[in-house]
Design a protein around this nucleic acid. Structure first.
Lengths: 191, 191
DNA sequence: CCTGTTCGTTCACCCAGGTTAATAAGTTAA
DNA sequence: TTAACTTATTAACCTGGGTGAACGAACAGG
């Protein structure tokens, strides 16, 4: 029984015991080493992952080869490329493990079973989408309104422990600046 | 019969004639003068609008009073503050008409009727949310990856006619720069 | 213990956008 | 027509991030 996964879903909808058993049967636990990929650019994203332990980064690559970290996923987060997952298109994003990571993998077909066989399954799908959308909207507002310094503070606030766990240049990419600039920002903040 | 609205919904789901009649009965046409507000900061967004004619801008206001245009809505676009609409929270965004505008207004309760009384109504709700989400994701990627110059070109490409219809400073705000900077960008591009 | 690698910081220089203000063109109102 | 207002452009100066390179600390492997 994957209790953390169940709890995460119950954050959106109610589940009875039968449904909890069903959901546990739909997920498969997989282990990834540091540096392994949950999803690579060009692949079709055929699963949604629930991170039991560890850390991933979700990133895209610019034409010039520069990698842009758009998101981090940590314990009890879901991770996937929703676009590729929905329409079976080739993913333009990669999801890489930054630590030894354990992920509960739910295939597209099994997620459809969850949607259809759990009473509030369809509602779960809608609520997750709404949640992702509102999160995206908030990220857009931050890109428009916040200076890099504020965006760094937002990051520290949103991911308090990640600062210790990942290289600085992933943070600078997420904040939207280059490493030397993040250094300057951090220096300004400590003075 | 609001045929443009029907056509827009049929972009997502199939409708039979009874459902088309129902939907037309759920919408109310309202007329707005240039400068009028469809939604003001602080209000709860209780409607979703379908723009039959005219143009709106969707914007937020920074702490320092600066307005940031996050989106434009034109003919055959839906407009709303989804967050405020969903959870009945006070809107942090405003939606203002930039021209004389006709909007088909659908109330929250009537949208629930559409969801529940149209066969694929729930699916429509989910598909619209997915559409909005993917659109938001693409805007985020552009903020990270594109220089202002490219973002201006994206704007021109996305809204070919709007350049003539709205003041430059709304465009510069949408692009994420100040008016003098957009002037410089435009000058660079014509040379 | 040494060596190579990785990673964060720092320096010097450059450049694009911000800021402020002046100007000019276009628009509206009287 | 004139006056007042709005809007886009331009200029001068400032600032913060980008770039390329050097340095040093931490760490891993031999």
């Amino acid at each position: 029984m994957y209790t953390n996964l169940i709890a995460a879903i119950e954050h959106f909808i109610r589940l009875d015991d039968t449904e909890k058993d069903l959901i546990s049967s739909l997920a498969v636990s997989k282990t990834y080493a540091k540096g392994d990929y949950f999803l690579r650019t060009g692949q079709v994203c055929r699963d949604v992952g629930f991170i039991e332990k560890g850390l991933v980064r979700y990133y895209g690559t610019k034409d010039n080869g520069e990698e842009i970290t758009l998101h981090f996923g940590k314990e009890n987060d879901f991770t996937s490329n929703y676009q590729s997952f929905l329409d079976h298109s080739a993913s333009q994003r990669s999801i890489q493990c930054l630590e030894a990571t354990e992920i509960l993998v739910i295939s597209y077909d099994n997620l459809q079973r969850l949607y259809n066989e759990v009473k509030e399954g369809q509602k779960f799908g809608r609520l997750v989408c709404e949640y992702l959308y509102l999160q995206a909207i908030s990220q857009i507002a931050s890109m428009y309104a916040d200076e890099p310094e504020q965006r760094y503070l937002n990051f520290v606030n949103e991911y308090p422990d990640l600062q210790q766990r990942i290289p600085q240049y992933y943070i600078s990419s997420y904040v939207g600046v280059k490493p030397p600039s993040l250094s300057r920002i951090r220096k300004r903040l400590t003075l």
